Every structure is written in structure tokens, then in C-alpha cells.
Amino acid sequence: MMKVYHTTRAAFQTAPISLSKWKTVIAAHENALADLRGFEFEFLNPAQRAFAAVRAKWPGESQLKEGSLAQIQMHKALAALEPVRKRHEDLIDAVNRAVDEMLETPAPSMAAMALKLRTVVQSDCKGHHSADDVLRILQGDAQRLSGGEGL
């Protein structure tokens, strides 16, 4: 037999939802994502292609001899790629922090909740929350937005 809980809409509301706060959070996420994609296009992809081109010159050279031309060129190519990779990791972390803030900000509408869901499902950057935490956050938004009915 199914239990029926009698609650009021107020029981699921925590604090007033600030639309301006939501818009600020979304703008921060969009900016972080644009910075990441721009960096990938302008710096990461060319650096990876340059490294791959040097690596392709020396197929089968898994153990490069010290002082050999192959070793020198690979060392230079890797030295050029490493700071680019580091910056890329920093930008990914910035996007993840923006996703975290988006998830932690109460969704002011069902459309906002759908945006949260789409972000964690479709994006490579999913924030630092576990999948269970994300589901709990989305469940909280759904309960609050529906007045708790059916949840």
C-alpha cells in the first residue's frame, strides 16, 4: 500500500530563489566554457598537433637515446606542450567550479533545472560532485519546484 504524506508547498521551500543570482551563475559558467573552448582551439589543438608531428618523425622510438636528435626534438616538443596542458587543466577546473556553483544554486524554474540536467549529462566538465550528489541536488530542485507533490 502506498503511503500518502500531507505536506504544504512551504515545507519544501528553503529560501527565496534569486533570478539575478541564477543569471550570474549561468553567465560565469558560459564564460568559463567559452574560455576553455577558445583555449583549446587557439592553443591546445595546435600544440598537440605539433607534438604529434614531432613524434611521427620517430616511429618506434619508445626508448630515445640520450643526446640523439630524436631525444632532443621530443624533449623540446614535450617542453612546449606541458605548460599548455597545465593551463588546459586549470581551465577545466574553472569550468568544473562553475558547474558546481550552478548545481548548488537553487533552480528558479523547471527550465533552469533542465539546464542543470543537460549540463551534467552532455558536458565533459561535470563538476566535482558525485553522481549521487547531483541526483540529490536535482531531486531537491524538483521537490521545491513541484511543491513536493509526487516526490
Rank of each mutant, 00 (worst) to 15 (best):
residue 1 M to Q: 02
residue 2 M to Q: 08
residue 3 K to E: 05
residue 3 K to T: 02
residue 3 K to L: 03
residue 4 V to T: 09
residue 6 H to Y: 10
residue 6 H to V: 04
residue 7 T to Y: 15
residue 8 T to D: 08
residue 9 R to V: 05
residue 10 A to H: 06
residue 11 A to N: 10
residue 11 A to C: 08
residue 13 Q to V: 04
residue 14 T to P: 02
residue 15 A to Q: 10
residue 16 P to A: 15
residue 19 L to Y: 07
residue 20 S to R: 11
residue 21 K to N: 11
residue 23 K to G: 01
residue 24 T to R: 13
residue 24 T to H: 11
residue 26 I to H: 13
residue 30 E to Y: 14
residue 30 E to P: 03
residue 31 N to I: 12
residue 35 D to R: 15
residue 35 D to F: 15
residue 36 L to A: 05
residue 38 G to Y: 06
residue 39 F to P: 00
residue 40 E to M: 03
residue 44 L to H: 03
residue 46 P to E: 04
residue 47 A to R: 03
residue 47 A to Y: 10
residue 48 Q to S: 01
residue 51 F to V: 00
residue 55 R to M: 11
residue 59 P to L: 02
residue 60 G to Q: 05
residue 61 E to S: 03
residue 62 S to Y: 14
residue 63 Q to S: 07
residue 64 L to F: 07
residue 66 E to R: 14
residue 68 S to M: 06
residue 71 Q to W: 14
residue 71 Q to G: 05
residue 72 I to N: 06
residue 73 Q to T: 03
residue 74 M to C: 03
residue 77 A to R: 02
residue 77 A to F: 11
residue 77 A to N: 04
residue 79 A to I: 00
residue 79 A to R: 06
residue 79 A to M: 03
residue 79 A to N: 02
residue 81 L to W: 08
residue 82 E to S: 01
residue 84 V to I: 13
residue 87 R to M: 01
residue 88 H to C: 01
residue 90 D to E: 15
residue 91 L to F: 09
residue 91 L to A: 05
residue 92 I to W: 11
residue 93 D to G: 05
residue 93 D to T: 05
residue 94 A to H: 11
residue 96 N to M: 04
residue 97 R to F: 15
residue 98 A to L: 09
residue 99 V to G: 10
residue 99 V to C: 09
residue 100 D to T: 03
residue 100 D to Q: 06
residue 105 T to I: 05
residue 106 P to Y: 12
residue 107 A to W: 02
residue 111 A to C: 05
residue 111 A to L: 14
residue 111 A to Y: 13
residue 113 M to P: 00
residue 114 A to L: 12
residue 114 A to H: 12
residue 115 L to E: 02
residue 118 R to Q: 12
residue 119 T to E: 11
residue 126 K to E: 07
residue 126 K to L: 04
residue 132 D to Y: 14
residue 133 D to I: 08
residue 134 V to L: 12
residue 134 V to A: 07
residue 134 V to Q: 14
residue 134 V to W: 15
residue 136 R to C: 10
residue 136 R to K: 14
residue 137 I to Y: 13
residue 137 I to P: 06
residue 138 L to V: 00
residue 138 L to Q: 06
residue 141 D to V: 00
residue 141 D to M: 00
residue 143 Q to H: 11
residue 143 Q to E: 12
residue 143 Q to C: 06
residue 143 Q to L: 11
residue 143 Q to T: 03
residue 144 R to C: 05
residue 144 R to P: 00
residue 145 L to W: 08
residue 145 L to V: 01
residue 146 S to G: 10
residue 148 G to Q: 08
residue 148 G to D: 04
residue 150 G to Y: 09
